[in-house]
Amino acid sequence: MKKENNSMEKTMNIEGMMCGHCEATVKKALEAVDGVSEAVVSHENGTAAVKLEKPVDDSVLRKAVEDHDYKVTGIN
């Protein structure tokens, strides 16, 4: 049986999130990006785990977050 794994995941390091409201803002911004199926955001860890349905350029993910005045310090 062939196992297909088309999902991709990136972890973003984000500075400036202080609360649950910040998490919700970043989550909504990332999930609005074409190709993003889910974003799990933690203001405590300063991270967003982004699940992708198709390749999305890091610059697009960075812009979605930084347009809301948070700073992306890395994407893996």
Rank of each mutant, 00 (worst) to 15 (best):
M1P: 08
K2Y: 12
K3L: 05
E4T: 06
N5S: 04
S7R: 09
M8Y: 03
M8G: 02
M8S: 02
M8T: 02
M8H: 03
E9K: 00
E9R: 02
E9V: 00
K10N: 02
T11P: 11
M12I: 01
M12W: 01
M12F: 00
M12P: 00
N13R: 02
N13S: 06
I14D: 01
E15W: 08
G16S: 07
G16T: 09
M17Q: 04
M17S: 08
M17P: 07
M17E: 06
M18W: 07
C19Q: 06
C19F: 07
G20Y: 08
G20S: 12
G20D: 08
H21L: 13
H21S: 15
H21F: 08
E23W: 10
E23G: 12
E23L: 10
A24S: 12
T25Y: 07
T25V: 10
V26N: 05
V26W: 06
V26E: 04
V26S: 04
K27S: 12
K27T: 15
K28P: 07
K28C: 08
K28A: 13
A29W: 13
A29Q: 14
L30W: 13
L30R: 10
L30D: 10
E31A: 12
G35L: 07
G35P: 07
V36L: 08
V36T: 14
S37A: 11
A39G: 09
A39T: 15
V40S: 02
V40H: 02
V41F: 05
V41Y: 04
S42E: 04
S42C: 05
H43K: 03
E44P: 04
E44V: 08
N45H: 12
N45L: 11
G46W: 00
G46Y: 00
G46Q: 00
A48N: 05
A49S: 09
A49G: 05
A49N: 07
A49K: 06
V50Q: 04
V50P: 07
V50I: 12
V50F: 06
L52N: 02
L52K: 06
L52E: 04
E53L: 14
K54I: 14
K54V: 15
V56Q: 07
D57I: 14
D58R: 13
D58F: 12
S59T: 15
S59G: 09
V60A: 06
V60W: 15
L61P: 03
L61M: 01
R62F: 05
R62T: 15
K63C: 01
K63T: 03
K63W: 06
A64F: 13
V65G: 08
V65W: 09
V65I: 12
D67Q: 14
D67L: 12
D67R: 11
H68R: 12
D69K: 14
Y70A: 13
Y70W: 11
Y70D: 13
Y70S: 12
K71Y: 03
V72F: 00
V72I: 01
V72P: 01
T73G: 05
G74I: 03
I75F: 01
I75K: 01
I75P: 00
N76H: 10
N76P: 11
